[in-house]
């Protein structure tokens, strides 16, 4: 499988990454080079093999459902590029 310019524009949109038009063509080539290389996985028979989702055999731990952190709006918003009081500021989203 390989990607074309429209596919690259589409996945850049999905990933919310602005890609300048002159970067589209080189990105097509780079991605195809990588995709072509990973295609060798197609050689392997994987019928009946379960995907590995956890390398360590352990059950996810349970804990009490209680608030352990929070109530510190100052710390949470301290790194915001734009804030007002305890709020993050973004361009208008509702007309």
């Amino acid at each position: 499988m390989s990607v074309d310019k429209d596919t690259v524009r589409r996945i850049a949109k999905l990933a919310r990454i602005a890609l300048e038009e002159e970067r589209v063509e080189p990105m097509v080539n780079e991605l195809n080079q990588i995709l072509h290389w990973v295609e060798q996985l197609g050689e392997v028979e994987v019928a009946g093999i379960e995907p590995l989702t956890s390398v360590v055999a352990q059950r996810l731990k349970m804990r009490e459902d209680e608030v352990t952190a929070g109530g510190d709006a100052e710390a949470v918003t301290a790194n915001a590029p734009q804030r007002e009081d305890d709020y993050f500021v973004v361009p208008k989203v509702v007309e």
Binding site: L41, G42, V44, V46, I49, E50, P51, L52, T53
Partner: peptide, 9 residues
């Protein structure tokens, strides 16, 4: 999904 199966192998 195929890559995760390779991981099992």
């Amino acid at each position: 999904s195929r890559a995760q199966k390779l991981r099992t192998l």
